[in-house]
Design a protein around this nucleic acid. Structure first.
Length: 112
DNA sequence: TGTATGACCCCAA
DNA sequence: GTTGGGGCCATAC
């Protein structure tokens, strides 16, 4: 199906995890989205925090572009002294996304 | 059933 | 542009 990106809905979500997976897979290389955006795309405007829990549940060796998900401030939700931070930063740079002062320019790289 | 925690968001100062 | 406080939902104990 043609990815229902940028779709907002306020209805009950039967399998939010499944939808989040689809939306996550639908993020093209070189683009990023915020937790709230991903949740909104899945039809759950206020489930931004759930997205974080969802990503945390993902296996470490997953091939999903979890690194393209950042907070609304354009920053990585990990402490700079964390391994995850460097890993995500490295992956973003691989996608052609440049981090300025540890922040991503959402104006340029924000999907949707 | 109630409390505490989390890869968060929005708004105001 | 940055920081802090309050609020949102779901999971774990």
């Amino acid at each position: 199906m043609e990815t229902g990106n940028c779709y907002t809905a306020s209805m009950n979500i039967p399998n939010l995890d499944h939808i989040l997976l689809q939306q996550l897979n639908g993020i093209p290389q070189g683009k990023v989205v915020t937790y709230g955006d991903l949740a909104k795309m899945a039809g759950a405007p206020n489930h931004a925090r759930y997205v974080g829990s969802f990503l945390k549940k993902l296996p470490k060796d997953t091939h999903l572009p979890w690194h393209r998900v950042i907070n609304s401030q354009g920053k990585i939700s990990f402490p700079q002294d964390s391994e995850e931070f460097n890993e995500q930063k490295k992956r973003l740079e691989q996608d052609g996304i440049v981090l300025l002062n540890g922040k991503v320019n959402l104006k340029l790289y924000r999907f949707c």
